[in-house]
Amino acid sequence: MDEKALKIVRDYIFAHLDKTDTVPPFDVYMVWKCKALQNWKYLISSTLCDGMYYELTYNGDKKEWYLDAYKKFENVVIKEGE
């Protein structure tokens, strides 16, 4: 299941890279995963410097995968008590 999730994201990245550029070497890796009943949830990223991360969900009832692609815009620290 893990390898399938990584392949789905890797294929998505390849399909969305700029076709005029050479494809840089990159890795796809799992940040987090969780299984609830027959469903899986993955957070996946890559070593590309594009600010993207991917949420992948497997619906075990329907045997379907759902992919959400996100771009990180900023990282803000919010401290308790301030």
Results as ranks from 00 to 15, higher is better:
Met1Pro: 06
Met1Ala: 07
Asp2His: 11
Ala5Lys: 08
Ala5Thr: 01
Ala5Trp: 12
Ala5Tyr: 08
Leu6Lys: 14
Leu6Ser: 03
Lys7Tyr: 00
Lys7Ser: 01
Ile8Gln: 10
Ile8Arg: 10
Val9Gly: 03
Arg10Gln: 07
Arg10Asn: 03
Tyr12Cys: 08
Tyr12His: 15
Ile13Phe: 10
Phe14Glu: 08
Ala15Phe: 01
Ala15Leu: 12
Ala15Cys: 05
Ala15Asp: 13
Ala15Val: 02
Leu17Val: 01
Leu17Lys: 02
Asp18Ile: 04
Asp18Ser: 10
Lys19Pro: 07
Lys19Arg: 15
Thr20Ser: 11
Asp21Pro: 01
Asp21Cys: 07
Val23Ile: 15
Pro24Trp: 08
Pro24Ile: 08
Pro24Asn: 07
Pro24His: 09
Pro25Met: 00
Pro25Ser: 05
Phe26Leu: 12
Phe26Asp: 02
Asp27His: 15
Asp27Ser: 07
Asp27Thr: 06
Val28Asp: 05
Val28Tyr: 02
Tyr29Leu: 10
Tyr29Val: 09
Met30Leu: 13
Met30Glu: 11
Val31Gln: 14
Trp32Arg: 10
Trp32Asn: 11
Trp32Asp: 14
Trp32Val: 00
Ala36Asn: 13
Gln38Pro: 06
Gln38Asn: 15
Trp40Tyr: 06
Lys41Ala: 11
Tyr42Ile: 01
Tyr42Asn: 03
Tyr42Cys: 02
Leu43Trp: 03
Ile44Glu: 03
Ile44Trp: 06
Ile44Leu: 12
Ser45Gly: 05
Ser45His: 01
Ser45Asn: 06
Ser45Ala: 12
Ser46Leu: 07
Thr47Glu: 06
Leu48Lys: 06
Cys49Gln: 09
Cys49Asp: 15
Cys49Thr: 13
Cys49Leu: 14
Cys49Phe: 15
Cys49Ile: 04
Asp50Gln: 06
Asp50Lys: 04
Gly51Tyr: 08
Met52Asp: 01
Met52Lys: 07
Met52Pro: 00
Tyr53Trp: 08
Tyr54His: 03
Leu56Gly: 00
Thr57His: 13
Tyr58His: 10
Tyr58Gly: 01
Asn59Val: 00
Asn59Lys: 01
Gly60Thr: 03
Asp61Ala: 14
Asp61Cys: 09
Lys62Pro: 00
Lys62Gln: 13
Lys62Arg: 14
Lys63Glu: 14
Lys63Val: 09
Glu64Thr: 15
Trp65Arg: 09
Leu67Phe: 04
Leu67Ala: 05
Leu67Trp: 03
Ala69Cys: 14
Tyr70Leu: 12
Lys71Pro: 00
Lys72Cys: 09
Phe73Leu: 06
Phe73Ala: 00
Phe73Asn: 06
Glu74Gln: 15
Asn75Phe: 11
Val76Gln: 14
Val76Leu: 13
Ile78Gly: 00
Ile78Lys: 14
Lys79Leu: 04
Glu82Cys: 07
Glu82Tyr: 11
